[in-house]
């Protein structure tokens, strides 16, 4: 039984990971197109080069996309994490009324089809003159990223021992001091993990930005779409490879933080 299960797991991982692994060598092609050349298959060093990486890292278009992704991603992640932390604390506090309703409202952007949200934002932002502005895109991405942050932080808050807050107050700590010295340090790993996932949500987003963003605000995925549409350049593969590497680092970081937050909580038996 155990062996069958293991085989299934390995197959599952292969199914998920092979397309990604296929991309990585191809991004080092010395050719002009997205396919494995005979030289590459023969493992001839001449078939490989880093020229597409150089092309990406020196292209004003790509650099602009990276800058935009960072600006929008960090902005949206910051706002989403602050709102998400407050919401998660509120949702896990026993005294909050209508928790089910609030949870549903907060998670709505994750459930409603993205095109519907994009259309709605386009209509709303027109009057507010937010179309084609960084502010508008950061607000839109905050709406999409906040549920992710809430879910991540909420999972940790649900294990949070509210008795500690009660204890702190009897020991003479006002609510702000308690938040700073007790609540925040204990949920900090989850908050950072929430911020990372919020950033990833923004980084990944391609629909809303096409509705409300201008050309100047194009992000990495938009630039990839443009690249795919105009010429199937292996530069996209180079970007994809770098993104995979980035994602791996982020996931490892998030996982480490998650483990650390568990380690802090486990001493209580």
């Amino acid at each position: 039984m155990k062996i069958v299960f293991r085989i299934w797991v390995v197959l599952g991982f292969c199914f998920l990971a092979l397309p990604l692994l296929a991309i990585i060598p191809l991004s080092f092609t010395s050719g002009q197109y997205m396919y494995y050349t005979p030289e590459m298959l023969a493992l001839d060093p001449a078939g490989y080069s880093t020229k597409w990486y150089t092309a990406v890292l020196t292209s004003p278009d790509w650099l602009m996309a990276v800058k935009n992704s960072l600006l929008i991603g960090l902005g949206a992640a910051a706002v989403a994490t602050i709102c998400g932390t407050l919401a998660a604390i509120g949702l896990s506090w026993a005294g909050t009324p209508a928790k089910g309703l609030w949870t549903m409202l907060i998670l709505l952007p994750q459930i409603v089809p993205i095109v519907v949200i994009a259309g709605g934002l386009f209509a709303a932002f027109g009057d507010l003159r937010l179309i084609g502005t960084y502010t508008g895109i950061i607000i839109a991405h905050t709406v999409l990223a906040a549920p992710v942050a809430v879910i991540t932080i909420r999972a940790s808050m649900d294990r949070f021992d509210w008795n500690l807050v009660a204890a702190a107050s009897t020991l003479g700590a006002n609510p702000l001091y308690t938040f700073r010295t007790v609540t925040l340090p204990l949920v900090r790993p989850a908050i950072i993990a929430g911020a990372i996932f919020a950033f990833a949500t923004s980084l990944d987003e391609v629909v809303v930005i096409q509705f409300i963003g201008a050309y100047q605000q194009k992000t990495i995925p938009i630039q990839m779409l443009i690249g795919l549409r105009e010429h199937l350049s292996p530069a996209i593969l180079a970007v994809a490879t770098m993104l995979i590497g980035f994602a791996l680092v982020v996931i490892l970081l998030g996982e480490t933080l998650r483990r650390r937050s568990l380690a802090i909580e486990t001493p209580k038996k």
């Binding site: 021992d161 008795n163 500690l164 009660a166 204890a167 702190a168 107050s169 009897t170 020991l171 003479g172 700590a173 006002n174 609510p175 308690t178 007790v182 340090p185 204990l186 802090i264 909580e265 001493p267 209580k268």
Partner: peptide, 19 residues
């Protein structure tokens, strides 16, 4: 509020700060 009362409380599960 509790933090202005100067009353010590020992809780059932101790409520020590784990960090």
């Amino acid at each position: 509020p509790a933090h202005q009362r100067n009353i010590g409380v020992v809780f059932q599960n101790y409520a020590l700060f784990p960090h």
